[in-house]
């Protein structure tokens, strides 16, 4: 279980998240929505221990372990993976090289290298990307949509138990989006990971059917609900949904 408790986060002395709370139980799919600049990507990077973000208050635990005492490598090794909004390009380092190094370090590299390759080929077929991607430099010179698929290739190899997807659906054409959503659904059904999905679009949620939807505004979750809350937001925008919440309070 991921538990974020009263978290306050600053960047360059500007408060981005304030008293932020979120709990994700094993196997639950949560969606984080909210206007541009609300702090959605910030929370995803804070979980991965990006030290550009200063934590001034609160805690994050994962399976009762203090994530704030870990570094990025240690968080990843708790089987937490982030696909970020704009994946990094690393010229000169291939996907295979990176993945092989990680699996070797974790003692998860199949004894037979052929098996590692076969798995990658299978993943490429599933994602409808050429097998040549296996030996391409990480995200380098790839189109926006290709980068997202390339990141999913890493994810399917690393097999995380907590999956954080920051706008995985942006930059994907309609067929690619369907394919990505279905491949994630399949991964979910096989592995039952927890998921935190950040999105502005309905398609992914139609296929993944989230358990909870949260709205982030001014650094806090201002509203939580089920899938229907997402549907309402897709229809009416954030303004309307948050107003109705205020109405409830009065």
């Amino acid at each position: 279980m991921l538990k974020i408790d009263n978290l306050t986060v600053k960047v360059l002395d500007k408060t981005i998240l304030e008293n932020f709370n979120l709990e994700i139980n094993d196997g639950e799919i949560h969606v984080l929505m909210g206007p541009n600049g609300a702090g959605k990507s910030t929370i995803s990077k804070v979980i991965m221990r990006d030290l550009n973000y200063e934590i001034t208050k609160g805690s994050i635990t994962y399976n009762d372990k203090d994530l704030l005492k870990m570094n990025t490598t240690e968080v990843a090794r708790e089987k937490i993976s982030l696909i970020s909004q704009s994946p990094m390009e690393i010229e000169g380092v291939t996907n295979a090289e990176m993945l092989r190094t990680v699996l070797n370090d974790l003692n998860e590299m199949p004894a037979n290298v052929l098996e590692f390759n076969r798995n990658l080929v299978k993943i490429c077929q599933k994602l409808n990307i050429p097998e040549s991607f296996i030996h391409r430099d990480i995200n380098y010179n790839m189109s926006g949509g290709e980068k997202k698929k390339n990141e999913l290739m890493h994810l399917f190899v690393l097999q995380p138990k907590l999956v954080i997807l920051d706008e995985i659906d942006s930059g994907l054409d309609i067929d690619a989006l369907n394919l990505v959503a279905n491949s994630l659904k399949e991964y979910y059904e096989e592995n039952h990971p927890s998921m935190l999905i950040i999105t502005h679009q309905p398609k992914l949620l139609e296929i993944l059917k989230p358990d909870y939807v949260h709205v982030l505004k001014n650094g806090k979750i201002v509203q939580s609900g089920d899938y229907n809350l997402a549907l309402e937001i897709f229809k009416n925008g954030f303004g309307a949904s948050i107003m109705s919440r205020n109405d409830l309070h009065e």
Binding site: T73, T101, V102
Partner: peptide, 8 residues
Amino acid sequence: FYLRSKGL
């Protein structure tokens, strides 16, 4: 950060 977030 990116490479460490993959577990390196």
